[in-house]
Amino acid sequence: MNSPRTSAVHHARVRTFHPRRGRMNGRHADALTRLWPLWGVPIPETPTARLDLPALFGRRAPLVLEIGSGMGEATVEMAAADPHRDYLAVDVHTPGVANLLAVVEERGLTNVRVGLGDAIVLLRHMLAPASLSAVHAFFPDPWPKARHHKRRLIQPAHVALLRSRLVPGGALRCATDWAEYAEVMLETLAADPELVNEHEAYAPRLAERPLTKFEQRGVEAGREIFDLSFRRR
């Protein structure tokens, strides 16, 4: 299996994320060495095949894609409370991936797999149309500078891709603490003819979305949290 360090290398292109590096402690390094071969999903620069999801999880079950899982706090809590669905969490931060692997082991979860790399590459090349029951994009990078808006995850072309991977009735759920990006998210998602807003505008805070340390810092700093919940027709 490819090393997670080499699988996160990408061709120069417009990315929706900041490539990040971080130092790993001994616990993280140990988790990555032991658990990546078991539960890791390499996302190569140019994938040549789609994922065999039943083989990956050892069963056929609805699949939730978590884009930008960070340190894995939300993923672990949602997967633990939702054992009848599988969770594929994707991030570009190796220490976060390693931490999630460690916590999955500690919690004894069998319905979580962890990808390291570009979620857009995963969606476009490794996941079949109508293969996801839900997509979660919680607190994606807002890319606040106008010249960087082209890097945002929630933009028309990416939304069309996300929606195409959802089953009919599948959920696309987002959250942000950046007010301007929230407005753009709402406008962009509402403009997709195959998505239906489950609320008139923003959604109430999703009950199943755990409060993470990242979100708590935003709340303490006085930033409003915006949730959006759409479904594919």
Rank of each mutant, 00 (worst) to 15 (best):
M1I: 02
S3G: 10
S3Q: 08
S3P: 05
S7Q: 09
A12Q: 15
R15Q: 10
F17A: 02
H28Y: 02
A29C: 11
A31M: 10
R34A: 13
P37W: 01
L38M: 11
V41E: 08
T48V: 12
A49P: 09
R50F: 06
L51H: 05
D52K: 01
P54A: 05
A55K: 11
F57E: 07
G58Q: 06
R60Y: 04
R60P: 00
A61T: 04
P62K: 01
L63C: 12
E66T: 00
I67Y: 05
G68I: 01
S69P: 03
S69D: 07
M71R: 13
E77W: 00
M78H: 04
M78T: 04
P83W: 05
H84T: 11
R85G: 04
R85H: 13
D86K: 00
D86T: 12
L88R: 05
A89K: 14
V90A: 10
D91A: 06
H93Y: 14
A98I: 13
N99K: 15
L101Q: 09
A102H: 14
V103A: 14
V103L: 15
E105P: 00
R107S: 06
T110A: 10
N111C: 12
R113Y: 08
V114S: 00
V114H: 03
G117R: 10
I120N: 06
L123N: 06
R124H: 13
H125T: 12
H125E: 15
M126D: 09
A130M: 13
S131C: 07
L132S: 14
A134R: 12
A134S: 14
A137V: 15
F138Y: 15
W143R: 10
P144G: 04
A146C: 02
R151L: 03
R152S: 03
L153K: 06
L166H: 04
L166S: 09
P168K: 09
A171G: 09
A171P: 08
A175H: 05
D177T: 01
D177C: 07
Y181N: 01
Y181I: 05
T188S: 06
L189D: 13
P193K: 07
E194F: 08
L195Y: 13
N197G: 02
E198I: 00
E200N: 03
A201T: 02
A203F: 11
L206T: 02
R209Q: 08
P210M: 09
L211M: 13
F214H: 07
G218Y: 08
G218C: 06
E224M: 12
R231K: 15
R231T: 12
R232C: 15
R232M: 11
